[in-house]
């Protein structure tokens, strides 16, 4: 069944000394894809930029809002409000290893197979990859990755930071959704399965009542290509479905940061991220 979700995402910074010459890019607008329809989306910034923001689609297909602020300001506040229709998960048809290993596939998805800063190759991973390759099909291997990551990591907020790599998280044995996603990508790529980082929102209650609002968070999961792309959420052990709202995809977190920028001024402190999701239909 299709869900309709309203999302309110707020974040920002405060500055020890007023900031100026601040240049920023925001990636918080949900995508429209074959399983998600974005009905409304706005981005609001305080202090408000003197003219309209530049809006563009980046290389990865994510909607970007860019703005700059020159008047000194003590805080920056960014809000994204959107209304999105999502659909239940569908499992892709079974695939074969031959399909995955085809040189054309390998070339086409080289960006989603190569190691990256957050998703490096490493010893701890190659053993897992060997095991995954013994699975009957690539899609079975994807399911096995999720099981392996749930064993390897304990969900624990605060144990890792936004800079933590997949291997660091593996060594520490704990992490949050970003770490679960990065570690899954490391295993999938080592096994030769093209896979990408998915960034967005997650509604945690499966049987939410209409009109029920919940405090959520930004979320991350992965998409794997086994003949076609499909999403799977290693943190929650489910396929990406009607409770997942997709904002962007990339090789890893660094391709889809919700808010990034530079400024001149005093040290910045994050005001935190507040995400509120309401099921409206």
């Amino acid at each position: 069944m299709t869900w309709r979700l309203r999302i309110n995402h707020e974040s920002g910074y405060s500055y020890a000394a007023p900031a100026s010459a601040s240049y920023n890019e925001v990636r918080i607008t949900p995508l429209t894809t074959d399983r998600q329809l974005t009905l409304e989306a706005t981005v609001t910034v305080r202090p408000s930029p003197p003219s309209r923001m530049l809006r563009y689609w980046d290389y990865w297909g994510t909607v970007v809002h860019a703005f700059d602020l020159h008047q000194p300001h003590e805080a920056l506040w960014v809000a994204g409000r959107s209304l999105v229709e999502t659909n239940p998960a569908t499992r892709p048809p079974p695939s074969t290893w031959a399909e995955i290993d085809d040189p054309e596939t390998v070339d086409r998805f080289s960006e989603f197979l190569a190691p990256s800063a957050y998703v490096p190759a490493g010893d701890g991973i190659s053993d897992v990859a060997d095991e995954l390759r013994r699975q009957a099909t690539p899609d079975a291997a994807v399911t096995a990755v999720v099981a392996w990551v749930s064993d390897a990591l304990v969900y624990q907020p605060g144990a890792t930071s936004v800079q933590t790599t997949a291997l660091e998280a593996l060594r520490g044995g704990r992490g949050v959704c970003q770490d679960f996603a990065h570690l899954s990508l490391a295993a999938l790529r080592a096994a030769g399965i093209p896979s990408r980082y998915a960034s967005g929102y997650f509604y945690s209650t499966p049987d939410a009542a209409i009109g029920e609002a919940m405090i959520g968070e930004s979320h991350a999961w992965v998409e794997a290509w086994t003949g076609s792309w499909w999403g799977i959420d290693p943190t929650n052990g489910v396929l990406a479905g009607e409770r997942h709202v997709l904002v962007g995809r990339g090789r890893d977190y660094s391709d889809v940061p919700p808010l990034k920028g530079i400024f001149t001024g005093g040290r910045s402190t994050s005001l935190g991220v507040k995400v509120e999701l309401t099921r409206v239909a």
């Binding site: 563009y56 980046d58 290389y59 390998v106 070339d107 080289s110 190569a114």
Partner: peptide, 21 residues
Amino acid sequence: DRVIPRRLVASSKHFHRTAYG
């Protein structure tokens, strides 16, 4: 059309995705 393998473009240090578009 595979005139140049995509992986060579994607792995070039000077392929700046920010210049896309």
